[in-house]
Design a binder for these strands. Structure first.
Length: 1014
RNA sequence: GCUCGAGUGGUGGAAUUGGUAGACACGUUGGACUUAAAAUCCAAUGGGUAGUAAUGCCCGUACGGGUUCAAGUCCCGUCUCGAGUACCA
């Protein structure tokens, strides 16, 4: 074989690696460990596209590099295989989601007869060094039994604020038995009733369980949820984008439902501080910080008759600036405090806000609205009356749903006060900032401006007043320092089929956990994947979905024994399985526990995590939460799962569009009065619509000439079609057609944006007989737009075609060559020939016309220099995750070695190892041609030796006044003074200096020489 | 609006702590080989300008300032684009 045959080489080595389990990781090894993890994919029916492997290639390069460097590398892959698309597809086709999911992973033919390549096959073709023996699928009962187990662990835990960790619920029970709950500082909802030990012990079992439910880290609660009617399920906050569902873009409404919740808010502070030690992109950390939304301030109570209105404020220092209060319209006290006179107005306002959808409220933040309740609260410090308003700028869900309004210091309060200025219940704005004009806008700065009109706070600055005010409020029992978080508890129930069932049954309306030893509770069979007629989730259709506490198994719903109880009908959300999978890989085939302590201790946590940044507030926050729980319960030794993370940029698709003439054209009626101007003629004519029986597509609609020509063609067709029409000759100026833009599958478009018309016709049934009007040069062009790659946009490019045509090694190199990993970029194969050319040149270095040929002679110093500078560059690049520049340096190395006619083993052997992380197939082939019997995968990485780069001279840029004029070769091993002397003696330098005076000479040895002249 | 990030040839992108801007690749142009095409190889390629030429000069990293012997890189201001967030008290 003398030419580079990627097909046979790649097939050969992929087979070899699989047969020899070359990349199997062991859980005990004397080598240092390295754990490289990719965010696992959701196996969709569209298959893997060229965007998926981008991150996988990067992590694979690092993994292979680390193996060369002597590490024991864990580099696993699996599937996040529960999820909505499979279920939507199941609803449409009636196929079990488990089947379609399996086909999407393993390949096969779907119900409509489409060939599905399968994620696994597609990945295998790219030559990843995954340890496939550790594959996980979140939808497999072998896996989700442990997801269920973690749910039980959450149920069996509460958050102890004093110890600042999750604790077993049994500990809480024993403390209740001993001393009631007054000394317990737990993360719970506010306002739990207090009880003594005696009271606790006197409670019935059911009462006790109800109380415990308020403390558990997963609990049932009636909450306002985001209900998506189109998807038939609730959604978490992070699953909603701009007020519509992230998947599908369906509207979302607020609805009160009984749901499983996760008390992630208990971990808010640790989730925030934990970010500090992580080597993540600052932007992701920032997104998480914003999402957690910590604000430090105080709770302040305002008395109103027998009621008490609590507010949260971050500015207790401005307490004397309170001019009024505002409650959210949904606030529970509103009805109780509203005066008779204001009742109608308040009712009307409440009704109006309730009718506004979440989306409207979000879109419209400018409009100010509100109503006075007629009530006055009492200022806790000054004792003055404070009017109470309601307004929808106050959110029911944040803080207490009420604010103390300080117009002089808060922009929203300022706007509200001005809008209602002069009306009943709106006093003049109190200004507490000495010497600050607040007539135009509020003064929000937290600087040293002294306070005034503030009694004992007068003269104090922000910090001091904050502290003093809180102290005073605590003293008189009217408030206390408090930290608030925006992070809400997460809804954990989904009214869907294709997710983990809860290990929960209900006895007397109270949830009971099924004992861990009876897991998994497997998904039941249902006749349809839709909600039941009375609105219960799909699991409500299962006929065998009850729990027998005697036999400890799932039994028929018809079983009417006393020991049989109904099972939970909701399933878990998509993020459940992905919140802990990184640990399962460590011990993926353990049948007795989720993973052994030894395995976890050995692998610790993930050293390098690569994936998209779109999971910033979902997966990456929830998995950190679960890991903190597992840590508190002693299950894992780490508190953070992903030490180092890189977010690869999305590879975008270039969608293709063709312009189609609508099947209706409008025709201005014939005009026979040449004396009229065109405008008047149009005015006096009538419009008739004619239907075209043909469809017309036009290549270059923007071109006027082309449009005119197409108009003629259509007109001619119309004349034939409507022979009874008269006066056609006069109508040509008045024929109008309208166009729409139709997406074309990018598979039918070549690199020059030309459409394969016959393929398009074949693909779109309604275009079979259409007329395609090409451009003058005979081609039919599409227009392009860069968008996210998706099946529905027909712009998905599969890596398989690239593998066929150029090979996996070229694909790997090319994806890296496109640019920095983190950057988003459109997929465009324009440059791939350059990379393929490189592969051929690399191959040729090891071959002559006759075949493989490598000499045993010593390499030239030049070649050694090329090799060693490449070693250094590639090593530095991989350590810095700068993969695109490595590819360039390979190209430079091969170009140089070719020019040097180098074919010495001394250089070519280490070169093969250098290339191996990037282009493993060709590296293995060359390695074996070089006579090695073992795989190249563990060959030691070449060691960089500076001595090959040492030179006797360096080319210095010589500049004058900072401008580089020419270069000079100067010796390296001379002093600065000698260097200066040599430069000054130079003829060219003298020329430049002629007639000028040297004011300063800067010589940086090894860098530059600069003369300041004048 | 706020927060974060980014603006470099026709294109994707290089430029380690301030030290030869445009590496590498695509594209384009010209040439060699060929009956021809493909493939391959060679050369040129930021813009302007002077010269027959060798060669030289000027301008150039979004825009306007600044610091420095020296700025794509540091500082201040402006503009544009992208991402996140959206009344969070």
């Amino acid at each position: 074989m003398t030419h580079y045959d990627h097909k046979s080489i790649e097939a050969k080595w992929q087979k070899h690696w699989a047969a020899n389990k070359t990349f199997k990781a062991t859980n005990n090894s004397g080598k240092p460990k390295f754990y490289a993890l990719d965010m696992f994919p959701y196996p969709s029916g569209a298959g893997l596209h060229v965007g998926h492997p981008l991150g996988y290639i990067a992590s694979d390069i690092v993994s292979r590099y680390k193996r060369h460097k002597g590490f024991n590398v864990l580099h696993p892959m699996g599937y996040d295989s529960f999820g909505l698309p499979a279920e939507q597809y199941a609803i449409q086709t009636g196929q079990h989601p488990a089947e379609t999911t399996k086909t999407n992973i393993e390949g096969g033919t779907d119900k409509s007869g489409n060939k599905i390549a399968g994620y696994r096959n597609q990945m295998d073709r790219i030559g990843f060094s995954f340890d496939w023996d550790r594959e996980v699928r979140t939808s497999s009962p072998d896996y989700y039994k442990y997801t269920q187990e973690i749910f039980i662990m959450l149920f069996d835990s509460w958050y102890d604020n004093d110890a600042d960790k999750a604790q077993p619920i049994s500990l809480l029970e024993s403390r209740f038995r001993e001393s009631g709950n007054s000394n317990i500082n737990a993360a719970t909802d506010e306002d739990l009733k207090q009880f003594t030990a005696a009271e606790w012990n006197a409670f019935t079992e059911k009462e006790q369980q109800e109380i415990l439910l308020d403390y558990r880290l997963t609990f049932l609660a009636d909450t306002e949820v985001n209900w998506c009617p189109a998807l038939g399920t609730v959604l978490a906050n992070d699953e909603i984008v701009n007020g519509v569902s992230e998947r599908g873009g369906h509207p979302v409404v607020r609805k009160k439902m009984r749901q499983w919740m996760m008390r992630i808010s208990a971990f808010a502070e640790r989730l925030l501080t934990g970010l500090e030690g992580l080597d993540w992109a600052e932007s992701i950390k920032e997104i998480q910080r914003n999402w957690i939304g910590k604000s430090v301030g105080a709770m302040v109570s305002f008395k109103l008759n027998e009621h008490k209105i609590d507010v949260f404020t971050t500015r207790p220092d401005t307490i004397y600036g309170v001019t009024f209060m505002t409650l959210a319209p949904e606030h529970e006290l509103v009805d109780q405090i509203t005066t008779a006179a204001q009742k109608d107005a308040v009712e009307a306002y409440k009704k109006a806000t309730a009718a506004r959808s979440e989306r409207e409220r979000m879109a419209d933040v400018k409009t100010i609205s509100g109503v006075f309740t007629g009530a006055y609260a009492t200022h806790p410090l000054s004792g003055e009356p404070v009017p109470v308003w309601i307004g929808d700028y106050v959110l029911a869900g944040y803080g207490t749903g009420a604010v103390m309004a300080v117009p002089c210091g808060d922009e929203r309060d300022h706007a509200f006060a001005n809008y209602f200025a002069g009306q009943e219940g709106m006093p003049a704005i109190k200004n507490i900032f000495d010497g600050v004009d607040i007539s135009e806008e509020a003064y929000g700065a937290k600087d040293k401006t002294p306070l005034c009109n503030s009694d004992f706070l007068n003269g104090m600055s922000y910090k001091q007043a904050m502290y003093t005010a809180i102290q005073k409020l605590e003293e008189i029992g009217a408030g206390k320092g408090k930290t608030n978080y925006r992070l809400r508890d997460a809804v954990f129930s989904r009214q869907r089929y294709w997710g983990e069932p809860f290990p929960v049954y209900y006895k007397d309306g109270l949830p009971q956990m099924i004992d861990r030893k009876h897991l998994p509770i497997e998904l039941p069979e249902v006749d349809e994947y839709l909600p039941t007629e009375d609105g219960a989730p799909p699991l409500g259709r299962a006929t065998t979905w009850s729990w027998c506490t005697k036999e400890n198994k799932v039994v028929s719903n018809d079983d009417d024994r006393d020991c049989v109880y109904p099972l939970e009908l909701n399933t878990m959300p998509g993020w459940a399985g992905s919140s802990w999978y990184m640990f399962r890989y460590m011990d993926a085939n353990n049948e007795n526990e989720m993973f052994s302590a030894e395995a976890q201790e050995y692998w610790n946590n993930v050293d390098l995590y690569i994936g998209g940044s779109e999971h910033a507030t979902g997966h990456l926050l929830y998995s950190r939460f679960w890991v903190k729980l597992l840590h508190d319960l002693g299950k894992v030794t780490v508190e953070e799962p992903f030490q180092k993370m890189i977010n690869q940029g999305m590879i975008l698709g270039e969608s293709a569009f063709v312009t189609r003439v609508n099947n209706m054209v409008s025709l201005r009626d014939s005009i026979k009065r040449p004396e009229l101007s065109l405008t008047d003629a149009v005015k006096e004519s009538t419009i008739r619509r004619l239907k075209l029986s043909n469809q017309y597509y036009i290549s270059d609609f923007g071109n006027k000439e082309e449009r005119e020509a197409l108009r003629q063609i259509i007109l001619n067709d119309l004349i034939k079609e409507y022979p009874n029409e008269t006066e056609w000759e006069n109508t040509e100026n008045f024929l109008h057609f309208y166009v729409d833009v139709i997406p074309a599958n990018v598979e039918f478009v070549n690199r020059d944006n030309e459409l394969d018309i016959s393929a398009f016709k074949n693909w779109r049934n309604d275009a079979k007989n259409a007329v395609f009007y090409s451009s003058k040069d005979g081609t039919f062009k599409v227009s392009r737009e860069v968008e996210k790659m998706s099946k529905s946009k027909y712009n998905v490019v599969s890596p398989d075609d690239i593998c066929d045509q150029y090979g996996a090694d070229t694909l790997r190199l090319y994806e890296m060559f496109l640019g920095p990993l983190e950057q988003a970029k459109p997929w465009n194969t324009a440059g791939i020939t350059g990379v393929y050319g490189f592969m051929k040149k690399l191959w040729k270095l090891y071959h002559n016309d006759a075949g493989f040929s490598v000499s045993e002679e010593k390499a030239s110093p030049d070649s050694m220099k090329t090799l060693h500078k490449t070693i250094k560059k590639v090593q530095d690049d991989i350590e810095n995750f700068s993969f695109n520049t490595s590819v360039s340096s390979f190209m430079i190395a091969v170009n140089e070695l070719t020019a040097q006619k180098c074919n010495s083993r001394e250089v070519l052997e280490p070169l093969a190892v250098l290339v191996s992380p990037y282009a493993p197939h060709i590296a293995e082939e060359l390695w074996s041609l070089l006579g090695h019997k073992e795989s190249i995968s563990e060959a030691p990485f070449p060691v960089f030796d500076e001595k090959h780069l040492v030179e006797s001279s360096k080319t210095y840029p010589i500049s004058f006044n900072g401008k580089m004029k020419f270069t000079l070769d100067l010796p390296v091993d001379v002093s600065k003074d000698e260097l200066e002397k040599m430069v000054l003696e130079n003829e060219k330098v003298q020329q430049q200096l002629e007639g000028k005076q040297i004011r300063k000479t800067i010589i940086v040895p090894g860098k530059i020489v600069n003369f300041v002249v004048g």
